[in-house]
Design a protein around this nucleic acid. Structure first.
Lengths: 112, 112
DNA sequence: TTGTTATATAACAAGTGATTTATATAAAGG
DNA sequence: CCTTTATATAAATCACTTGTTATATAACAA
């Protein structure tokens, strides 16, 4: 559950989502990731730490560089949780469908 | 984009996720939603406001009651954004697959 | 070594968020 | 009307987040 806390909370920040979008194109170092932002390097480092803690990215060590990439298991738990909502919404939709069908039937009944 | 900020940030709180889970079972009033939590009514009211602002729930007026339910459009934009990540992860996976296939072929080559 | 590049950590200020209690509003039931 | 029920808003507090600058560490290159 605290995985979900961390993951959703990590995704709530636009800078971090932008970083993830960039990483969707492939691996990148901290400085590469920092470049597009009007923000200091330490700030980006912190965002990366948040993303790593949330299990959304992983890092290699390559000399002095620490290239980041999307974590393969990134959105697993999130997806599983959202599936619960999706199912509920679908059920509600079906229920509504049922109600409409019912109304239609009654309508027909009246017409008869 | 600020929709995503609000939605992810709303989902980052365990109390709010629990509220959504409860609403997955069907409509409920504020007091009904508040009951399971060791938390004051105003606190729950605030959580509901956050969820409503994020577009995750809607409310009816029924006399003095304000029954809440999941918003049908709830997780649309979230899903669309996560799809971007899913695709990236899948591509990386396929790329890895390619690398493995490559290695295997070279292996076979060596065996020959 | 020494300087440079890449990144992390520390300390701090400012902003945001979650909660509480107290109070307001608004409908429902005598 | 008056009381109760259902909910919202206000004010205060406390913790956490985000950003900054300054500094540390660690590898690389000369």
């Amino acid at each position: 559950m605290q995985t979900l806390d961390a993951a959703f909370s990590a995704l709530a920040d636009p800078t971090r989502r932008a970083i993830l979008s960039r990483l969707a194109l492939g691996e990148a170092t901290v400085l590469e990731l920092a470049k597009p932002f009007d923000m200091s390097q330490p700030a980006v480092s912190r965002h990366l730490k948040v993303l790593e803690t949330a299990g959304l990215i992983t890092r290699r060590v390559e000399g002095a560089k620490r290239p980041c990439r999307l974590a393969s298991s990134a959105i697993g738990e999130i997806d599983r949780w959202l599936d619960m909502l999706r199912q509920a919404l679908e059920q509600n939709y079906n229920r509504l469908d049922g109600v409409l069908a019912q109304m239609e039937q009654e309508e027909e009944g009246n017409v008869k």
